[in-house]
């Protein structure tokens, strides 16, 4: 199983919004270029720890963010 998951977002504003919420909640995250095999939609995506996936989703839902999707990150 992958160590990381990647949150795909629609826009860079959304990437920054996601980063802001997750960082404030103390999650270990990083903005990365959107993996080409997953989407051509936006320049940036948010990498999180796979183990944090459910908690991250909950934090983002609470903030009212509608995500594109979350995928495992294959390195």
């Amino acid at each position: 199983m992958s160590e990381f998951a990647v949150i795909l977002v629609h826009t860079t504003s959304e990437a920054i919004f996601t980063e802001r919420i997750l960082k404030a909640a103390g999650f270990d995250i990083k903005l990365i270029p959107t993996p080409r095999h997953l989407s051509s939609d936006c320049g940036s995506a948010v990498r999180i720890l796979m183990s944090d996936k459910e908690d991250c989703l909950e934090a983002l839902n609470e903030a009212g963010l509608v995500l594109d999707r979350i995928e495992p990150l294959e390195i």
């Binding site: 860079t12 504003s13 990437a15 920054i16 919004f17 980063e19 990365i32 270029p33 320049g43 940036s44």
Partner: peptide
Amino acid sequence: SAGRSAHRLSLEAERIRFDARE
């Protein structure tokens, strides 16, 4: 430019723009 690339300077510009929105 905010919102145009994924390098760290562009992301920092986007952070500043988002801060203005917020």
